[in-house]
């Protein structure tokens, strides 16, 4: 099959008969970092489907992909729409909007994200009855605060309680954000403890969080962790790009 050209992808997103073509198009524009002048307006237009009642599940999928693409395209024309979607009543929409705003490093979003977490472990961090979800998408919100990078007292105080959450992946996200914001090695050490967790899922999460935080001291622990080499390489990429340390490249070479 021939790969699609950018103009075909743009037309696929513009039409509304075939949501699966739109779904792929929204993903493609983000993945390829499209600079096409119609990309941002068309992605924004897909979000309207979230306000329909009832919401069409296929069009909701397109909108979620569009939100992810906006995070990759980092265009300020999407700031307002993404900020609005932090208050969506749809958990996944809040989650993806937070992730995208974090990737974009949006300072304007910090306060709204903090307020979603402000109710702490018994509010935002409480489990929703009979689902695996928490009240708020805490992992995405915590990671976004770390990526945005404002390290004022209010932000740190909001994040800290989540380092004691009963779910290890939430602790990991909180430690990652605190490590990014403060550089204090105590959070890195708590993350490296999670690399020894009996569940592979937790080890993988902690490994990627150490990489995202770019903490060079973690390199030997990452190297030794019982995790797939492909994830170790992703984590080490983060550290190599953060530190510019050539020894990290040698460790990566050995894992190829």
């Amino acid at each position: 099959m021939e790969p699609l050209t950018e103009s075909q992808v743009i037309e696929n997103l513009r039409q509304t008969e075939d949501p699966s073509a739109q779904y792929y198009a929204a993903w493609w524009l983000g993945k390829m970092r499209s600079q096409h002048p119609d990309a941002i307006p068309l992605l924004l237009a897909t979000l309207g489907a979230l306000d329909d009642s009832p919401v069409d599940p296929d069009r909701r999928g397109v909108a979620l992909n569009a939100i992810r693409a906006m995070g990759l395209l980092k265009d300020e024309r999407t700031d307002g729409a993404l900020l609005d979607r932090l208050h969506s009543n749809d958990y996944s929409v809040r989650e993806e909007a937070a992730r995208s705003l974090g990737t974009m490093g949006s300072h304007a979003a910090a306060e709204a994200i903090r307020s979603l977490l402000a109710s702490g472990l018994d509010g935002a961090g409480r489990e929703q009855p009979s689902t695996p979800l928490l009240q708020e998408p805490c992992e995405a919100l915590l990671e976004a605060l770390g990526d945005i990078g404002i390290n004022d007292a209010a932000t740190l105080a909001t994040i800290k309680p989540f380092t004691r959450h009963h779910r290890p992946l939430i602790c990991s996200a909180a430690c990652r954000a605190l490590l990014q914001l403060t550089g204090d090695s105590c959070w890195g050490e708590q993350l490296t403890q999670l690399l020894l967790h009996p569940e592979a899922l937790v080890r993988r999460g902690a490994l990627l969080d150490l990489g995202a935080a770019g903490w060079t001291a973690a390199v030997p622990m990452i190297q030794a962790a019982a995790v797939e080499p492909s994830l170790k390489l992703v984590a080490l990429r983060g550290i190599a790009e953060n530190s510019g340390n050539q020894q990290v490249l040698d460790v990566m070479d050995a894992l190829l």
């Binding site: 970092r33 990429r237 190599a240 790009e241 510019g244 050539q246 490249l249 990566m252």
Partner: peptide, 12 residues
């Protein structure tokens, strides 16, 4: 090249 880490490795 998009990925900084690839650029670093090729320079090396």
């Amino acid at each position: 090249e998009d990925a900084r880490v690839v650029r670093h490795r090729a320079v090396l």
